[in-house]
């Protein structure tokens, strides 16, 4: 079988619920097509990977604590990029998607892990936002711009979300 391995890479910059769902649907689809998939999470995108109500035992600076409190903790706490209406929009969207039998973001994330999608958290952004490894979900990798580019050079599909 002359099946070449193709890569799909994604930079997930946004921490919006709708964009996170879109990125994980594409990631799962690409993995199902047989691609090696790498998702690089940076800036607000890191919030998608946060665990709920988990605080690192490490000491944080004042600004880091503020960031940690103000930013959404994990996939269930994200808002919509449009029509969020203080979280009402996100609730309504989740309700509609459930009725239409569409997988939730946490389900899509589990599915992606099961299909071997490589999830990479940007360590520089983690440092800026004061997010510690303890506060992110398990089973992910850590890296910087070269980690992402190294995969992106070999990819035929490369997205910035």
């Amino acid at each position: 079988m002359a099946e070449e391995q193709n890569n799909t890479t994604m930079v997930v910059f946004s921490g919006d619920l709708d964009k996170a769902i879109a990125s994980f649907i594409i990631a799962n689809g690409a993995a199902a097509m047989g691609d090696k998939v790498t998702m690089f999470f940076t800036f607000w995108g890191l919030n998608i990977l946060r665990k709920e109500n988990v605080q690192t035992p490490k000491k944080k600076a004042f600004m880091e604590k503020m960031f940690g409190k103000m930013m959404p903790q994990g996939p269930d706490k994200l808002g919509l990029s449009k029509m969020n209406m203080g979280g009402m929009g996100a609730k309504m969207m989740k309700k509609v998607m459930k009725e239409k039998n569409i997988s939730t973001l946490p389900e899509l994330m589990e599915m992606a892990k099961g299909l071997g999608v490589n999830i990479v958290a940007c360590t520089m952004s983690m440092d800026v936002l004061g997010i510690d490894k303890d506060e992110l979900i398990d089973g992910i990798d850590y890296g910087g711009v070269a980690t992402y580019l190294g995969e992106a050079y070999d990819a035929k599909v490369n997205l910035f979300i």
Binding site: I25, G29, A31, M33, N101, S103
Partner: peptide
């Protein structure tokens, strides 16, 4: 049946 994108594809794969 009844599953939405990308589930049919993921199941098939």
């Amino acid at each position: 049946k009844g599953l939405a994108c990308p589930m049919p594809l993921v199941r098939a794969k």
